[in-house]
Design a protein around this nucleic acid. Structure first.
Lengths: 336, 336
DNA sequence: TTGTACGCGTTATCAA
DNA sequence: TTGATAACGCGTACAA
C-alpha cells in the first residue's frame, strides 16, 4: 500500500508538503498540489484511516447500539428504518456509522463504553436497550454524547428522540371509544419498558376521560412478542368475552393477537376491533389491514443522528425531542 | 484517555512489558501481569484500535457493501437478514462488520476499493450491486477477497454464495404445471440481473420439459419493484386473459401482482394462481398466504462471512457455494 | 511556499 | 523476565 512517503519520494518533495497538498492547505502552490494529486492517483494512494484517527484523535464515527440484530428480530423493520435514517444523515455530514449489539457486548464482556472508546466513537444512538442493563447506565452516565430512542433522557450527556407515547396511546384508545367500544383490553409490552409505561398511561387517560371503569386484569404483557401475544390474547378473550376491542402496544403483538382472534373463531373487526402501534410495513398487508399509530422510524434515525452531531459539536440541544405520530385508520376497527 | 504509558508510569515498568502483559504474552511474570491489569481497570484503560491497527496493519473488519439502505428498501427484510447472519458469524470469530452503500460511494466519488483500503478491510460481501457498476468491476478484479451474494463469481479473488436459481425457478414453475396450469406468465426482475437471467432459464426449462409453448410476450420485467409489478401485471392480464398462473421472481413483485389481480376483480387463487420467490416475512401474511420459494438469507449472510474469512486466511474455497432452497406451498396456487 | 522534527498509541525486534 | 528503541502513516508547530 502506497503512503504519502511514496508520493513524497516520487515527487521529490517532503511528506509535509504532500500531506498539506492532500488536505487542501492554502499554502501549497497549485503546481505542487496538482503534481501530488497526479502521483497519488497514479500509484493508487489511499489515506490510512487508522493513522489519521490516531493523530487526530477522532474519527467522525457514530455508533448505533442495538438490543439485537437477531435472525427473527427484523420482521418489524424498525431497526432497518432507524439505521437507514441514521446512516443517511450521517452520510450527509461525512460521518460513518458502526453497529454494536448488546448480545455481542455481553458475550465478549465488553461494555458499550469500552466499545465506543476503543473505536474513538463521537457519540452513540441507543435503541431497545433495557433500562436494567448495567452497561446502559454506565454509558448514559458517562460524558459520551448519547441519543436514546424511545426512552426519555435524564442525566448525563444524553438526549432522546421519541414520540409522545401517552398522547399516541390515548389517541388510539379514544378512537376506539368514539367507535362506541367500552370494554377495551390492552396488550402491552414489558412492565419495565419506558414506552410500555407511557402507553399504559395513555390508555388509562383515555378511559378516564370517558368515564370508563378501568380493569387492570384486562391489561396483559406480552413482551412485544408476536407468539406471546397470540397465546395471551387467547386466554384473555376467553376470560373476558365481553371485550369488544383491543389496543396493542406494537403491531407485531397486534398481528399475534389477530391470529388468536381468528383461531377462536371471532371475526375482525365485527366481533373484536383491534388497533396496533408503529405502522410497520406488515400492518398494511394483514387481513384486515391494521388500524395503527403511525410513527416514522426513518425520520427518527435521522433526527437522532442530527441531534447526536449537535451534541458532539457542543451545541445546545433539547433534552427530549418529540416527533409526530398519527392515527392511521385502516380496517381493523368496527363501529358498534 | 489513559494509555499504556500511563499504566507503565504508575506501575513503574516499561510500556513494552505493559503491552505484553495486556496481550497475555507468556513471558510476563504473573505478578506483573496482575498489577498491570489492576491498574488498567482502575484508571479505565481501553486500547486504542487505531493505534493497534496502524502497527498491525490489519483490522479484523469485514465490509458489507449494499446497493441501498434506502427508506423504502427494507420492506423485504433481506438486507436485515443478510446483515444479521453476517454479523453473527463475524462476531463469533471476533471480526467486526462495517457498512458501505453504493449511493454513499457514488455521492462521494469514493470507490468500494478505496473505502476498503482506507479502512483496512480484510474482505467484503457484496449484495445487490449492479454488474454495470464500474466500481463493482474494479473491486472484483482487485486482490481483495470478495464474496458475492446471488451473482456467480468469475475472476479475481472472489467467490459467491447463492442458490441454484435455475433449479428453484424450475421448481416453482413445475409446481404450477403439476397443478395443471398451462398458460403461465412470468414477472421477472431486471434483464441484466444475474438472478433474473437464471430464473428466466428455470422458467423456460420447466415449460420445455412439459412441452408447453413458450411465449416471450408473457414475460415482463418489473425491476423487482412492487409498484411496477402492480402496473405491469394489470396490463399483462388484460392483454392475455388466458393466463391462469403467474411466476414472480420476487415476493415483493408477487405482492404487487396480487394487488393488481384483485383490482381487476380476479380472485387468487381461483382465477389466477401465483407463486413468488424469496419467502420474505410479508409473504406469510398476504391474503391468501403466498406460495413461494424459500431461501434463507440469514444463513446466506453467515455463509458469506465464513467464506470470506477462509479467503482472508488464504484457505482454499469453492468458487460458488449453493445453498438449499425449497418450494413452500401456501395458498396462492389453485389446482385446475 | 516548503522542510524539519516530533508525537499520536501501540506492537515488534533485539539486547540485557 | 524485562526494557530501550524503532516503526506503523499521518498531521502540525515551528523554522527556513
Amino acid at each position: 500500500m502506497p503512503t504519502i512517503k511514496d508520493i513524497a519520494r516520487i515527487a521529490g518533495i517532503s511528506v509535509t508538503t504532500v500531506s498539506r497538498a492532500l488536505n487542501h492547505y492554502s499554502d501549497v502552490s497549485a503546481k505542487t498540489k496538482k503534481r501530488v494529486f497526479d502521483i497519488a492517483k497514479e500509484i493508487g494512494y489511499v489515506p490510512n484511516r487508522s493513522a489519521q484517527n490516531l493523530v487526530k484523535r477522532k474519527n467522525n464515527t457514530l455508533a448505533i447500539i442495538l438490543s439485537g440484530l437477531e435472525r427473527k428480530g427484523g420482521k418489524d423493520n424498525i431497526v432497518y428504518q432507524l439505521l437507514s435514517g441514521m446512516y443517511s444523515y450521517a452520510e450527509s455530514v461525512n460521518y460513518e456509522v458502526v453497529l454494536f449489539t448488546t448480545s455481542s457486548a455481553h458475550q465478549k464482556e465488553k461494555t458499550y463504553i469500552q466499545f465506543c472508546k476503543e473505536h474513538n466513537i463521537g457519540g452513540a444512538v441507543l435503541n431497545g436497550i433495557r433500562i436494567d442493563d448495567p452497561y446502559f447506565h454506565e454509558l448514559v452516565n458517562s460524558d459520551l454524547p448519547c441519543v436514546l430512542i424511545d426512552v426519555l433522557a435524564e442525566g448525563g450527556n444524553t438526549s432522546s428522540v421519541t414520540i409522545d407515547n401517552i398522547e399516541a396511546a390515548k389517541d388510539a384508545v379514544a378512537y376506539l371509544i368514539t367507535q362506541n367500544h367500552r370494554t377495551i383490553g390492552m396488550i402491552n409490552g414489558r412492565k419495565e419498558a419506558d414506552v410500555s409505561i407511557q402507553r399504559y398511561k395513555g390508555y388509562i387517560k383515555a378511559l378516564k376521560q370517558h368515564h370508563i371503569t378501568i380493569d387492570e386484569d384486562k391489561i396483559i404483557y406480552a413482551d412485544f412478542d408476536e407468539v406471546k401475544a397470540y397465546e395471551k390474547t387467547k386466554s384473555l378473550l376467553r376470560r373476558y368475552p365481553e371485550i369488544t376491542a383491543l389496543f396493542c402496544a406494537s403491531d407485531m403483538m397486534a398481528i399475534g393477537a389477530m391470529r388468536a382472534i381468528k383461531d377462536i373463531n371471532l371475526r375482525i373487526p365485527q366481533d373484536i376491533s383491534i388497533v396496533g402501534f408503529d405502522n410497520i410495513p406488515l400492518s398494511e398487508y394483514t387481513t384486515p389491514p391494521l388500524t395503527t399509530i403511525d410513527q416514522d422510524f426513518y425520520k427518527r434515525g435521522a433526527e437522532a443522528a442530527k441531534q447526536l452531531l449537535k451534541m458532539i459539536q457542543q451545541e445546545k440541544v433539547e433534552k427530549n425531542i418529540f416527533l409526530e405520530h398519527k392515527l392511521l385508520a385502516r380496517h381493523s376497527v368496527h363501529m358498534l
